[in-house]
Design a protein around this nucleic acid. Sequence first.
DNA 1: TATGAATGAGTCTTCATTCAT
DNA 2: CATGAATGAAGACTCATTCAT
Lengths: 221, 221, 221, 221
Amino acid sequence: MKEKDLNELIEGSNEEQIAEKKLKILEAAIKVFSEKGFEGSRTSEIAKEAEVAEGTIFKYFKTKKDLLSGLLIPLSIKFLRPLIMKSAEDILKKDKENATEEILKELFLDRLSLIKKNMPLIKTVLVEAIYHDELLEPIKEQVVPQVLQLLDSYVDSHKQNGDFNDYNTRLISRTMMSLLMGYIVLSSVFPEFFSLNEDEKEIESIVDIFLNGVKNKGEQI
Amino acid sequence: MKEKDLNELIEGSNEEQIAEKKLKILEAAIKVFSEKGFEGSRTSEIAKEAEVAEGTIFKYFKTKKDLLSGLLIPLSIKFLRPLIMKSAEDILKKDKENATEEILKELFLDRLSLIKKNMPLIKTVLVEAIYHDELLEPIKEQVVPQVLQLLDSYVDSHKQNGDFNDYNTRLISRTMMSLLMGYIVLSSVFPEFFSLNEDEKEIESIVDIFLNGVKNKGEQI
Amino acid sequence: MKEKDLNELIEGSNEEQIAEKKLKILEAAIKVFSEKGFEGSRTSEIAKEAEVAEGTIFKYFKTKKDLLSGLLIPLSIKFLRPLIMKSAEDILKKDKENATEEILKELFLDRLSLIKKNMPLIKTVLVEAIYHDELLEPIKEQVVPQVLQLLDSYVDSHKQNGDFNDYNTRLISRTMMSLLMGYIVLSSVFPEFFSLNEDEKEIESIVDIFLNGVKNKGEQI
Amino acid sequence: MKEKDLNELIEGSNEEQIAEKKLKILEAAIKVFSEKGFEGSRTSEIAKEAEVAEGTIFKYFKTKKDLLSGLLIPLSIKFLRPLIMKSAEDILKKDKENATEEILKELFLDRLSLIKKNMPLIKTVLVEAIYHDELLEPIKEQVVPQVLQLLDSYVDSHKQNGDFNDYNTRLISRTMMSLLMGYIVLSSVFPEFFSLNEDEKEIESIVDIFLNGVKNKGEQI
DNA sequence: TATGAATGAGTCTTCATTCAT
DNA sequence: CATGAATGAAGACTCATTCAT
């Protein structure tokens, strides 16, 4: 019941609504794929995880491969949509009132929690995209442009009002992505080496370096 | 013969010496694993690539999984060793003579070419480490510490001579790694979005931002 | 309604009455079985062909196998009954009035059209009888005796009035069956080799050879 | 050893030689297919029958379907080749010395024993050809023309020397095939109805009717 | 030592059959 | 009665691994 309502709420229409069981199977697939990889996963395990019979999977997805491609839909629903909808407004609005540091920190923290919340899904799709070109295409056509549109426009507006130096816009956007991705990957894969503080402090430091660099300017006076 | 001698030379000891055929198999494994992933690879294909019979693989490696673990040895030979040997001296030596920008650019470019040259190996080991904890361990014990020792000492010396601000050393090292990794990953996976210039110029920009940040200080007025 | 009445009329009793839907399913089964063979047929396809839900099939037939056995009933209704009813009287009646050639031609043509009209049903039952003994039994008990009774009695009467040589009756009946079956099978499976003329002319030739043989008696001189 | 020699003998060359194990699998397939039909057969059963592992089947035949197509080769080797080689000479040679009755009887008996010896193979290929067009094609292109060439030429020569009436050659050939096929099918499927005598006597009767017809001519005098 | 034919456990996938609605 | 979603047993096929040569 609750699940259904939630689903409708997110979707806003019955058209796109995904059958309850189909959703359960996809969620199980995300879990298992993210733990074992696509080729290392067994449809039998996905079925058990989804609490359906193995045959049921193939009622909804013609092949195991289709299960993987099917993850692209939840990816855009669960990750991409909130990414765009919330940010477009929020960031630009607050932008004028607060200091750049604050805005960036909030932006990074927000993205961080969004990514962490959808980690298994994102991880699976990205890793498998390495080996399955069909997955990479939609990412190139949907995900990356969406993210870049957001970042680029943010960067551009700051270049225009003189906050940012006149670097290539895309270079700045890429730097932001690198810093966030790098932090996430390194601190989660090698926490003993790279998890220095709680997320908030870390993000603050990252933003600081991003804005001011590591070079000591003070002594030049 | 020649191969063997070379091998011995590199190794410096007979103990670690890898049989000619074993090496060929490992190289084939790197190629195939990097293209299809570990689970997606077939020992038959590796055998064909290595120009040996399928059975021969199992003379050198008890199981397919052992092939993967076996990659850790070439990883340290082909990637790690040059990483340390060359850099430790060179960089620190030149450090005093040249400007920080130059040194960093050279360091980044050097690492970049080293990584690119060993991409299939690195890619395979890192991706598979996600799913096979046995792989992650040696990386945590060998690779990361080696890399960090190099970076940290570099960063520390610059903090001491006042070139770098007083950020946490590891934070700076992580930032360097993030920027380089981010560049490599993004520009190779999504070249149409992130390959802005040839490597040298890109690295220059990255170093510039790393040192000075993107914020316009107004001091230029 | 109309269908039901007709059905009752044909059957002459309620006992044997076949439900409308059951009939539709059986007809669909005949079609699909005759195209793909029993094992090669899918209950899902039969259901679609019969325009019922897949589950409905199993309301009328406990198993798929029962569907095949169920075909024996239409076989006797659609093929056997007309075979006997019409022929028994007609042929023997006309027998005295017309030349043997004419009678045989008519008989063969009649059987030919009856077989052709029920080809899918006959083909299915006969082919599957090869692999399912349960099907062969009713054929041995019902179909063959019926056909033989008709043929044998025809042959016997001709032997008695001196038209036919004194071959074993069953041998003559078998020859008639062989000639008709052979023509049907060969000309339908390999039309490019064996379809020489329209059916009527073919049957005429067959009857001619059946009666006179291929040997040149020299009497024509 | 013996098997191998025999094989070589039959083939006459190493080129066409079929691997011992491949032959064993094909023979098992013939047996199982002829008992259960193609779709009703299990590769596991064929493997057990052939005394090989299930996987071995797929080393020699990519798919189960290929096993069926593979039967066409033994068909031509075991059935077709002897059919042609022996007959072409033998029959035409003896033809001049003996009475037509004798020749035909011998021919029919010879074909009969050849067919009976290869019954499972012939049965399988013919029955499955109904549902698999790929099988029918080679039969139309190889088998039927070969058989017809033999029969037609026999018939033609008898028409020319005045032994046979001037029926269409193909009609006579078809009649011969119908009579033989009809006898084989009817007497083996329904022996209780159609197995009147031992084969030799049966064939004699069939030849007699084929040549002279069933009509009583004597009384016309 | 190296081979590659053979193995058979394990996989994805199908499909007859069931059963809650 | 009729439905069709769900089931899960069973099938074709794959592939790491073995072993006689």
